[in-house]
Write a protein that binds this DNA or RNA. Structure first.
Lengths: 340, 340
DNA sequence: TTTGCATGAGAAAACGTTTTCTCCGGGATT
DNA sequence: AATCCCGGAGAAAACGTTTTCTCATGCAAA
């Protein structure tokens, strides 16, 4: 008897059974710690399975159990700014459960989205996580009638679904309160387009913290806008701000660079806070940016566990879940610590 | 007869067969355009399959055909700098063939890598693409004894395997030749650590183009290094360069920012070329960077097609394949066009 | 009429598991 | 001595496809 498996190809449970001198049923039960048998038999089968390098075929298993231990992550975020940390969280949370993740980047192409969804469904994914780059926009594909659970992250979900997003208001509060606490009084807010839900949330929190009179400048999500806004402020009349709260790190970077060029010191003269904590931007700015982190990885982790729960039929409360942000302090604000 | 599928759960080929009043064999043959039957029967079965929303179970299909139409992309590139474009290419090339991609980010953790590989093999992936962030380094997991084909991209492969990487020398040549063509003569090269294969390749090409006396400054892959290097050059004695070829876009950005701060105009006084064409850096620099694009997406596409070919048993020539780079002209060099 | 052959369609095996059911033997209880 | 039950193990069905046979029919050729 050939221990390397009789028939050509991968080695199956039949090979293990033959090598151990038991039936495949006993082998299966031995390996899965189910059924009844002597401890010796179980141990022997397990040992032999290890020796011959048996690897159960998930296709066969899935066919029977109707669980593929596979989920799909659908995204239209081209730069991966959101997707990558999210994906890392999802994967990290699910790998322990033996679940692998299909990543499907569908630009903004409905047809491509449809194809990917179709492919995933044929492959019997246990669930799908739909992720985008803004919370007030839908993916260009209808996920409402799918035979598998769908969880939304950073994108607008169907009514009755589970949606995850960061708590923009709380994050903005964190930033502005920090500026206030280190003694800043004239804080302006340079941010993105006001048709973004997140932008309005953050601006709202900004106003709530500083009370009444604040200045919010809406623009684009680009360094150039940070640049332009600072130029506009400092070339104008009147008292200058002593702090800037920016809608994202790119704007913040543009602002910081422009201040430096104007000879205005950051953080001595002006404190700057960013949003996103995008390492590649925040960490490379001179000085490195204090920024609000949206905890995307944690968000991914929770989205992963949620879709898994749904897949297993466990009850999950529908609705929008907002996760708290965290302030990452670097050197663009000055101030030592919240307790001075 | 219930047209929505008799037994509970997803609708199977049995349901289609019943609805069409034929056997499942006939149904299968009708849908796959195999076997013999009247055109009417075939058309009717197809129509009904569409009507009831039949979706073949890829698990069952894969069990039989020993093809899962699934591949794995293994990467240790945390920032996704390389992974994302690569993934986009792989996915784009394979979606047409019905293949979906598992993305597995294994930081630099051998245990995690092992777990992911194991999970993918159980799921019967048809092949694996291993990708890294430097061509002279291996992933922290042994892929040499796998029962499925492995293709390497931007990472060191086993002898006898297929490996894809960009043509660093050609890319560097493109950059330096461009600078020469627009009239620059005193070109320095500010780049990364010289223990990177790519760094040495590019420096070699730089020397080859400008002939003999060139200045190469090795450092870190960071903006701060670009900054520091420019400071060092311009605060020193002697004639200043009229062009800088940088090892990546971050270094280039640091250099451009520092030049601007020193009142040196880019591109009028000094031309700067980057490497990577990382949109988020190159596009946001003032002025936007001319940069060498490594065509990662195309590289991903070819890697995907290659692993597919191997999975299907088609012959593939082993060895290292280098893909040409492309120069993306923005505004950091001046000069109108190659033909002046 | 018999033979041959093309056409249309179904039965059944196979893929690699898991799970339910059945069987057998032996020690403990009546 | 008859009964019960339990521990140990295997047989077989099931999951949803694809594919290889086999079969029945009808028509043309001998």
């Amino acid at each position: 008897m050939n221990i390397a498996g009789g028939k050509r190809g991968r080695i199956t449970i039949h090979d293990v059974a033959a090598a151990a001198g038991v039936s495949i049923s006993t082998t299966s039960k031995a390996l899965n710690d189910t059924g009844r048998m002597s401890v010796e038999t179980r141990a022997r089968v397990k040992r032999i399975a290890g020796e011959v390098g048996f690897r159960p075929n998930a296709l066969a298993r899935g066919l029977l159990s109707k669980r593929s231990f596979t989920i799909g992550l659908l995204t239209n975020d081209t730069y991966g700014r959101f997707t990558l940390p999210l994906m890392a969280g999802v994967s990290e949370a699910l790998v322990d459960h033996g679940v692998s993740v299909f990543l499907c980047a569908i630009e903004d192409d409905p047809a491509l989205g449809q194809i990917h969804v179709e492919a995933m469904l044929e492959k019997q994914v246990d669930g799908i996580i739909a992720s985008g780059k803004r919370v007030d926009g839908q993916l260009p594909v209808d996920l409402s009638k799918l035979p598998v659970p769908v969880v939304y992250a950073f994108t607008e979900g169907e009514p009755g679904s589970v949606t995850f997003r960061s708590d923009d208001a709380q994050g903005a509060r964190l930033a502005v309160e920090w500026l206030v606490r280190i003694g800043r009084r004239r804080i302006v807010h340079i941010t993105g387009p006001d048709d973004f839900f997140s932008v309005r949330e953050r601006a709202g929190a900004y106003h709530a913290v500083i009370g009444g009179e604040g200045v919010v400048m809406y623009g684009r999500w680009a360094e150039a806008w940070g640049h332009e806004a600072v130029e506009r402020i400092w070339s104008g009349e009147g008292e200058k701000p002593d702090a800037i709260f920016c809608g994202n790190d790119q704007i913040a970077r543009g602002a910081v660079d422009t201040l430096r060029e104007r000879g205005i010191r950051v953080p001595e003269d002006v404190s700057v806070v960013g949003f996103d904590n995008w390492e590649i931007v925040a960490g490379q700015t001179r000085p490195p940016l204090t920024s609000v982190d949206m905890e995307l990885k944690e968000l991914g982790r929770q989205a992963g566990l949620t879709v898994l729960a749904l897949a297993e039929g466990r009850p999950v409360e529908p609705g929008v879940r907002t996760l708290p942000c965290r302030l990452v302090v670097r050197q663009s604000c000055g101030g030592k610590s919240p307790i001075e």
